[in-house]
Write a protein that binds this DNA or RNA. Structure first.
Lengths: 196, 196
DNA sequence: CCTACCGATCGGTAGG
DNA sequence: CCTACCGATCGGTAGG
């Protein structure tokens, strides 16, 4: 049955939400049109028609995952004062997002990075762009904190962001592979050691 | 043509070496019997006959990758004095292994962890066991260093190992996704900040 | 949004 | 170690 434009948007949103859930566990390549169609009680061509190709679907799924990440991690820090205070709120929201397993298979972008870092193309480029944006988001608050004298004057923003990313990755890894209940505590201690 | 037992062992080793190279870029699931057969100028059944199933092949590939990791990272630290000295050598070998991209697609085990952490089974268990062994290897030297008074008495070995893993993961990520030339420098600085 | 297809490829098996 | 095959599934298309 053909659907109205409004209904089609709802269908598209439903496809993307299901895709995020599947790809979080199976990866963006393990996400298949056939499985999506079965789980949504649609035909394969009905699913594919919304995107045109699997690659376009993968890019749309990345976009949806990014909306979720921003709502969970960027947004809670908006009211906080710029600089060290906001940086701390960002990092706590980040740890909380990983601890609560907002994506059931762990951080969507870390998984996508490992899946696509060796495969040139638009998907790889999109994943890298998301990380660039997030690293710059963090670096901006680091620079503000240094300028305000809330972090040591010699702080290298690139290196501090590198270390914060490492803490988050270790937390993601310990949560997903080892199901380690101490990991979030370790992560908070490690963040605090760097941000006071 | 049927081969002698010695020749068969050579063939098996050749399959595993090629498998490690492919799986490093494409993942253990992206490693397919058909591609292996083509690249090795063998039939699919010729490849599969050495292992019996794809899962058995994946486990054998993990074993081969582990041999390489131990030769590259564990072995250089054997002559070093137990405790902080050996821990530093282990970490430098670890950083060097990531910097030199011993596996062309980045650390084999980190990639496998992300690929399989959501898929219960023998492959996931094997990946987890390799990480457990490596974490315990590091923790043992941390405890020795604390006992010797070379690390602060209050050091939590679990937390320090967690942080070292984070540094290594951030280095792997920056190298593979961002091709960041500063990453190894950041990683060495971060290791040094924790190990003096 | 559907049915009905396409060629390609997957892991795996039978039999030699 | 091979050829020859199996059913299942892949992404995608034609036509409605």
């Amino acid at each position: 049955m053909r659907k109205s434009a409004v209904e089609a948007l709802g269908t598209r949103a439903a496809i993307l939400d299901r895709s995020v859930a599947i790809a979080s566990m199976e990866g963006l390549e393990g996400l298949t049109i056939g499985r999506l169609a079965t789980e949504l009680s649609m035909s394969k061509s009905g699913v594919l028609g919304h995107f045109g190709s699997k690659q376009a679907l993968q890019l749309a799924v990345l976009g949806r995952a990014d909306e979720i990440f921003r709502a969970e991690v960027w947004e809670p820090a908006r009211p906080a004062a710029p600089g060290l205070t906001r940086l701390r709120v960002l990092c706590e929201a980040w740890v909380s997002y990983l601890e609560r397993q907002v994506f059931p298979g762990g951080c969507f972008f870390v998984a996508a990075a490992h899946e696509f870092d060796g495969r040139p193309g638009p998907v790889r480029d999109a994943v890298e762009a998301r990380f660039d944006a997030w690293r710059e988001r963090l670096a901006k608050e680091v620079r503000r904190a240094v300028d305000a004298g809330d972090l040591p004057a010699g702080t290298d923003p690139g290196r501090l962001v590198f270390e914060l990313l490492g803490v988050a990755m270790a937390l993601n890894h310990a949560t997903q592979l080892h199901r380690d209940p101490h990991a979030a505590t370790y992560a908070r201690q490690a963040m605090k050691a760097r941000l006071g």
